[in-house]
Amino acid sequence: MSYTMFSAFEFKRKDTYIHNLDPRTKMFMTLIFMTVALLFTSIVPLLITFIATLIPVLLAKSVKEWLSSLKGTTMLLVFILVINSFVRDLNFAVAMVLRLIVLITAFSAFFLTTHPDDLAQALIQMKVPFDFAFALSMATRYVPTLAREAQTIMDAQMSRGLELQRGGLTQKIRNLIPLIIPLIVNSVRRAMSIAESLESRAFGAIKKRTYLYQLKLTKGDFLFLCFLIMYFVTMIYLKFYFPFTTWMEWKLPL
């Protein structure tokens, strides 16, 4: 179950326009969508933004993956809807749900289409220190491995009759010990063994590492960036200079 959560945000290799964009371009895209989503609190502009975020998802042929990452957050969305309609009103609640959907969509459009190694490379070229970028890429590399390992440990202990639901609160906490200890032991062992392998491949030999790949912005990137900026400027104009009151502030007919 936990595994599906991870895999929803996981990169899937495909050959599409969006997949082939530079990670920096896509980072900029996510940033713009986030900013716009946070600027507005009414339904119509958020709906427009939502449709805009859908475009890269569609272009990336990743609708199925996007839907499954949304599904993972259904509970959260329902929660936000209920809370906000009590605290404020239904209009605001719907807007907030839309806003969250936009954020999730913007992030999935990034993570579903960006190879973690490319992300690391992009960060390095943006002057993030190598150690940090490398740690990040290792983390994404090993998340599925660790998730699967956790599952195996759970299976192994259940085969010995462990029942997590059994007993009162303290017992339930104690039930976790047979899972946590092997998890720690294995993570440490794995870390040692990875370190040993890195060390044997001259990791950290010199300060100034070179890189096989170098990311370069292409025409496709510039085109995409142009559209993004146009979109952003339009939204800003709508927000601050457009004499709205009319359709932009449209409310649910309650």
């Binding site: 890429s137 063994s193 392998s197 590492r209 070179t210 096989l212």
Partner: peptide, 26 residues
């Protein structure tokens, strides 16, 4: 265990990893 030796998500990068660490020319 190959799982602990393959640290990139792409074979080419995996092979480049060690010489990159040495700072060899591209």
């Amino acid at each position: 265990d190959p799982e602990n030796q393959l640290v990139s998500l792409n074979v080419e990068k995996e092979l480049a990893f060690a010489p990159e660490n040495l700072g060899l020319p591209r």
